[in-house]
């Protein structure tokens, strides 16, 4: 597969370190004292029962939730106090638990929005359509077309997203995230709502993309088989704290983890 030209200009490999992260809502601790290192280019599964703090942890990393204690570092740059938009420019990109798209736009324009993470020409170049503006516009549209092709959604690219089936909408969101190579990708239950075929397709697409353009990825999933297939590392959370880390087999087969937190939520492909 052709390599997507990296548009992000930030250096570094994508080593994400969390130190004693604490997040509370209304006095209730959602994440307590979490310290983790996510190694560069490694896909890590984040598992745990509902309410374990998985989404909150992702929100904290991406800047959508305020951190009360602790620090977040990406390749030794501290992100803790930075707003979400700035972290995105550092390469920390996220998907949302429910698919979030710009409903009034086409699939293509939704993907194009992802190019905002790349460097853009200054306001004067844009207003007066200078060569820099024309070049960057062509570049962005080219990248959007290419990622659409790679994810198999070219044929519907110019249709309004409101008309597209759920699985395709998920792919559009993924395309928006991947059009500019991320450094750290955070996905929150990307396979939710997909059937078995859809799940397999999603896993293969992500793995193929990752193989060509590696990045650090953290993925929340209840689908144990998907976690085993895709992830080389796994972290289990419960009641806001880390209870196990290691390879997926080790974490998921831990009887205590399984008994205490998964119960009948285990899915098989």
């Amino acid at each position: 597969m052709p390599e997507v030209e990296p548009l992000s200009s930030m250096g570094g490999e994508g080593r994400l370190e969390l130190r004693q992260i604490g997040v509370s809502f209304g006095g209730v601790a959602a994440v307590r004292d979490v310290s983790l290192v996510f190694r560069p280019h490694v896909i890590t599964g984040l598992v745990g029962p509902n309410g374990a703090g998985k989404t909150t942890l992702l929100n904290a990393i991406s800047g959508f939730a305020s951190v009360e204690r602790g620090t977040i570092e990406l390749d030794r740059s501290e992100l803790t106090k930075l707003p979400a938009a700035q972290r995105a420019h550092y390469g920390v990109v996220r998907g949302f638990q429910t698919v979030r798209l710009l409903e009034g736009e086409t699939a293509f324009d939704n993907i194009l929005v992802g190019c905002e993470r790349a460097s853009q020409p200054n306001i004067f170049a844009q207003l007066f359509n200078l060569p820099a503006q024309r070049r960057s516009w062509r570049r962005d549209r080219g990248a959007a077309a290419e990622i659409a092709e790679r994810l198999g959604i070219s044929s519907v690219a110019h249709r309004p997203v409101a008309e597209l089936p759920f699985a395709t909408r998920r792919l559009v969101e993924l395309a928006r995230i991947l059009v500019v190579r991320p450094k750290v990708l955070l996905l929150d239950e990307p396979a939710a709502g997909l059937n078995a075929h859809g799940r397999r397709q999603l896993t293969e697409t992500l793995q193929a993309y990752h193989a060509v353009s590696p990045f650090t990825m953290i993925v929340i999933e209840h689908d144990v088989d998907l976690v085993r297939r895709m992830c080389s590392e796994c972290v289990a959370l419960a009641q806001g704290s880390v209870i196990a880390t290691g390879d997926p087999g080790h974490v998921l087969d831990d009887p205590e983890v399984r008994r205490a937190y998964f119960g009948d939520q285990v899915h098989h492909a």
Binding site: G63, F64, Q86, F96, R100, G114, E116, R117
Partner: peptide
């Protein structure tokens, strides 16, 4: 939120 997530 989507806009922020892409750096806007």
């Amino acid at each position: 939120s989507v806009a922020q997530s892409v750096g806007i």
